[in-house]
Every structure is written in C-alpha cells, then in structure tokens.
Nucleic acid binder design. Structure first.
Length: 586
RNA sequence: GCGCCUGUAGCUCAGCGGAUAGAGCACUGGCCUCCGGAGCCAGGUGUCGCAGGUUCAAAUCCUGCCAGGCGCGCCA
C-alpha cells in the first residue's frame, strides 16, 4: 500500500537500520516485522513515530528502550533524512526530519498533478461496483442518495488506486413490487376513466403515482380499456416502470452519478441465466428438493439454514435471481465484486457469501458495504417520513434545496455503516460552520489569489526553480507535512472502502490553509510596499518576526505561491474523489 | 430466542493495539486600511455503556452483561 514518499522512505530506513544492527551483532532476530511508521500525534513528538522497538523487543527478549536505542544509533549514523532521533519511554522512536526533506513532497505533487496520491495497488484488477439498484417503483430517497454518493466516490477511490471499475445498477424489474406498481397504476387508470375500482391493498400511494398514471393516459388514451385486465395491467406496469427508471436515471445524472451498465433482473429470466446458475449448483450437489420446493444448501457455507430458490408453485424466489445475478457477475470475470446495500438487508449478506463460495470463489471476493439510514433535520427537528402515506422527501428535493455538492459531502462525512444526521439548514449555510463551504472556500480563495497574481504579472514558478528554503514558518511547514499524508489517506480510504477519511482530511487541510492565509501575506502589498505589515497590533507577541515586520521578498512570494499551488492541487484531488466540485469562485 | 450493527465531550462524530483520547458544532470573549471576514484567535470539558480477561501497552482484541437500531418468510 502506498503511503507517500516520506513515510515510505522512513519505513525503509528503519527496516535497513534493523538489518544493519543484526549484521553488527547488536540484534539477533532473523526476521523483523514491517516497521510501523505513523505521523506523530503531537508536534513535540517530532514528525514521525515508530513503535517497532517495542515489537522487536519481544522477540529479542530485551527491554524496548534498549532496542530503541540500538535502532536510533543506526538511524542517526546512516539516515541523512533525519534531523533528530529520540527515544522515549516506553520505547518509541520519535523522528524529526530535516526541513528540506519535505520539499520533495511539493515536487511530487507538481510532478503528479491530478494524479498525486494515486497508486497502482489494484494492478488493473477488475471490480464490479453495484449500487443504488432501487426498484423502479418510485423516486429515489435519501438512503439511495447516500448509496449513490458512496458508490461514485468508491469508484473514484478505486480507480485512483489502480483498479478497473465498472459501475452497475441492478434493476429489480421482476417480482411482486412490480406487480404492485402495475396494479396501482391500473387502478388509477380505471378511476380516471370513471370506473369504480378498489385500490389494491398495499398499493403504492403518493402523488407520483397520480402523475405517472396521467402520463400513461396521455400516452395511451383509453386504448387500454379495450384490453383484457391482465394485458392492460401489464402495459401499465411496463410503461410506469420505464418512466420511473428514466426519472431515476436523470436524477442520478444530475447528481453526477452515471453507470456503465444497467442490469435488468427480468433479463435473468429471459436469458436462461437462472436455470444456468441453478444447474451449476445442482452439478455441485448444492441444491435439493424438499416439500415440493427447490433448496440451496447455503448452510454448507455458514448460512444459518438452507434457502428456497424455487417455490412449490414453481416460481423462483428473489434469492434465485440474486444467485443468478452474482453467477453472471463471476462469469463476466470480475476479480472483485462490491455491493452497496441498505443496512436493513444485512441479514442477506451470509446468503450471498454462500452463493459466491458455492460457485467456487473465496468469500472475500464479494464485499458488501452497508449503508445506514439518513435522518433529515430541519430546525433541529427530525423530518418525519412515511412512504406508505406517500409523504417523503426525495433525493431530488434535497439536491434542489442544498445543492449536489453539499449533499454529496454530507453523505460522505460519516462512516457509511452508522446513522447519518443530515442538517438541511447547516448544509445550506455559507459560512465556516458548514464543512462543505469551508473546504470549497479554501479552494476558491486560492483560485482568487492566483487570479490576482496573474493580473499583477506575478509568476508562479516551478517547484524546481522556486526558492523553497524561504519556507520556514510553522504554518508553511504544517501545510507541507499535511500534503505528504494525502497518498496514505487515499490508500486507506480505498482499501477500507471508506471515503469519510477524505472528508476529514480535507477539512484539516482547509483549516491549515486558512490559518496560514490569515497570518501571512503572499503577494506584496498594493502600494509598492515590500513590507509585510502587521494587520493589527494585537498579535505582535504571538507572531514570529518574519511575518510582522520583515521584508516580503520576491523569493518569499514565489515560494509561497508554489506551496499554495500544490495545496490547491490536493484540494482539487480530494474533492474530486468525493465527486464534489472545486469552485474557482463562489 | 438467534444473528448483525451501534454505544467516545452538551450535540454530531473521528480514532479501532501504542505515548497526556481528538475534531466540528453549540457556548463566551476578541480580531476587518491591503491577497475573498464565506476567515482567524483565545477560553473546557470526558467513569471511551458496564464488568472481567489477553498484552510490555486496550477506546481499540476476547468473553459476559446493559441500552438502542436492524434482520431472522416457499416477500422483494
């Protein structure tokens, strides 16, 4: 896993220090663990910390402090990157890097540009990422929105990590829900033509059904009245679901989410995939007949019990379609399958894992990411929703109200398997309280700075020609150090399938930028002023001499512009991973 | 009854084997002659649900319990 140049260099420096110590007889172990190197939690602890000594101490049967000193000695004499190595109880190695090491980070960002942070961990392995997959029986709700934002972000994270990802939407266009939709629309259709009909029990309510029916009337007139109820109903259903799917597609596209493939459940029946998949299982002796039904021996693969795939009445169960669907995914030669499901389907996961294993794949080949519910808050109160009564706020409503960027960022701010509180007021705020604006503003602020620099004819040099040694302020160094962590954050987000790490990272980066920007000037003052004057006398004691009175030299301006250019690039890259725009102006 | 998820600051949540457990919000008080104040600074809080255990080291791993959510159909 890639973690960025700095961390990688130090990790290998420690690894070779261990080997050297053994060669000199200072350590005995034949094998050493991969040294863990983390960014220090506190600045007083240096830049990076490692706990290897405490792990190695065990196998060496020596005290952690002893071992730490041995490693520290080797590092100090041979690693040119280090300014200072200290050993701290109970056995930590705290490392401070030479300041100029960090400039390599800026060079890497400039070199990689919008690919900074990317890796080839996936080595081109193929991933099928299935998400949203809502029944075409109604508009998308908040839960689907969260799944959509997550899926889109995961596809970007994985592609950035070297995987070849296809996004797929599974259309549940077979089965009872569809029949119910057809019934509901047909009933309305008849009612519109003055026929008295009982509305189906559990039928779909809501204004959209009414609108849908009107569209059917508009399209078909009273033609359906002449058909048999079965045929008319079927046509109503097909027409309605086609329209709904169209709306879903448009809503998702407007939300910035598009799919490579739309896979129809109904097609599994017509293509014979279901029979094919079940025949495959039968060949492996994993199906049997009991009580007139056909069962899948899922209990052989840690499912709690066997499951029916074909009912007594000869109809296939939903599980049968899903088995066939996943069979087909495997046939399509994907290395990894990722499904994003609503958390209320979690009980279904063992069944799908069983299916995957039944077809001879490792369970790990399928990863199911569960998405918890979204609770909408308005004025601090939960917005109650009832689908049955047709009272609910759709994804489109929310996107219209707060904007796609804010919606996506909010959906991705929390781990997907925890409940999400979505504060509509907060999402709309144009201030620092709103994390989306806080981050986007950082980007827009920089864009504005570069615009002004350009107007004034001030060049942003390349990293190579920039006088980077002028960067010595703590706020500058903190920014660079934070930039160095980005590849590791990206890699962790991708491997954990957890984009929320990116949102946290970006908030921190934006914070560091705002602090820097408040304290330090970048461009010379408007007059001919080359002095960096103090904005207010109040802070004289907390600010270092450079920023209070010293000359803001051309070198410093150049160096800071280069630094900020790289900050801007990383903000862009991070926002892109979330599917959120990086605005030039706001 | 069985299974899964969640319990961390007033609130929303990070952290998921490492050092004195963090952030945002809320609250209080400051800060705009100049690059975007859509910003910054300063104030303080935790029996990490409870109890055992493993470990040099536990919010983090294991076991049991408590609380909340969800799931356990020849529904989809």
């Amino acid at each position: 896993m890639s973690t960025g140049i700095i961390q990688e260099q130090i990790t290998s420096a420690i690894a070779s220090a261990l080997v050297r110590a053994r060669e000199r007889g200072l350590l005995q172990s034949q094998h050493f663990p991969q040294p863990s190197v983390d960014f220090s939690k506190k600045e007083e602890w240096g830049d990076l910390s490692s706990s290897v000594a405490m792990v190695v101490a065990r196998q060496e049967k020596r005290s952690p402090m002893d071992v730490a000193h041995v490693i520290a000695d080797q590092l100090e004499t041979t690693c040119h990157l280090l300014e200072k190595v200290s050993v701290v109880p109970p056995g930590f190695l705290n490392l401070t890097l030479r300041l100029d090491c960090w400039f390599a980070v800026l060079k890497a960002i400039e070199h990689m540009g919008d690919r900074y942070g990317h890796s080839d961990t996936g080595q081109g392995q193929r991933v099928l990422l299935e998400f949203v997959s809502a029944n075409p029986t109604g508009p998308l709700h908040m839960g689907h929105g969260r799944g959509a934002a997550l899926g889109e972000s995961l596809s970007r994270l994985l592609r950035s990590s070297g995987y070849a990802v296809d996004k797929e939407y599974y259309i549940n266009d077979a089965g009872r829900q569809m029949t119910l939709l057809a019934d509901s629309v047909y009933a309305r259709y008849l009612a519109m033509h003055g026929r008295e009909v009982a509305f189906p029990e559990d039928g779909y309510q809501g204004d959209y059904i009414q609108a849908l029916t009107q569209a059917v009337v508009h399209e078909q007139g009273d033609r359906l009245l002449a058909l048999s109820p079965e045929d008319a109903q079927r046509e109503c259903g097909e027409s309605a679901s086609r329209k709904l799917l169209g709306t879903i597609r448009e809503d998702l596209a407007r939300f910035g989410v598009e799919f490579e493939t739309w896979y129809s459940e109904a097609s599994l029946f017509t293509s014979g995939k279901i029979q094919e998949a079940l025949a495959d299982l039968a060949q492996r002796d994993l199906v049997f007949t009991k009580d007139g039904a056909t069962w899948f021996r899922s209990s052989q693969f840690h499912d709690q019990k066997d499951r029916v795939v074909c009912k007594q009445d000869g109809h296939y169960t939903y599980l049968a379609s899903d088995i066939a669907y996943h069979f087909d995914k495997l046939c399509r030669r994907y290395d990894w399958l990722i499904n994003i499901w609503g958390a209320d389907h979690h009980g279904y996961v063992p069944r799908m894992h069983a299916a995957i294993q039944a077809f001879g794949s490792a369970k790990e080949r399928l990863r199911v990411v569960l998405v918890q519910m979204v609770r909408l808050l308005r004025d601090g109160k939960t917005v109650e929703m009832s689908k049955r009564a047709g009272e609910f706020i759709t994804l489109q409503d929310v996107v219209d109200e707060v904007g796609g960027d804010a919606a996506k960022f909010f959906f991705l701010m929390r781990r997907s398997d925890t409940h999400l509180e979505f504060d509509l007021e907060l999402a709309k705020k144009h201030s620092a309280e709103n994390p989306v604006y806080y981050v986007q503003y950082a980007h827009a602020r920089l864009a504005s700075l570069f615009r002004i620099a350009q107007e004034r004819g001030i060049q942003v040099p390349s990293v190579r020609e920039a006088p980077l040694l002028a960067l010595v302020q703590p706020e500058e160094i903190r920014l660079i150090k934070h930039l160095s962590r980005f590849p590791g954050v990206l890699a962790a987000s991708a491997s954990e399938l957890a984009p929320h790490h990116i949102t946290f990272y970006l908030q921190e980066l934006a914070g560091l930028l705002h602090v820097f920007y408040y304290k330090h000037r970048v461009l010379p003052s408007r007059g001919d002023g080359v002095e960096e004057t103090e904005p207010d006398g109040h802070r004289t004691f907390e600010v270092s001499p450079e920023s209070t009175r010293a000359v803001l030299s051309q070198e410093l301006t150049s160096a800071r512009l280069v630094l900020l250019r790289q900050v801007q690039v990383v903000l862009q890259n991070g926002l892109w991973l979330l599917g959120v725009t990086a605005p030039e102006k706001m």
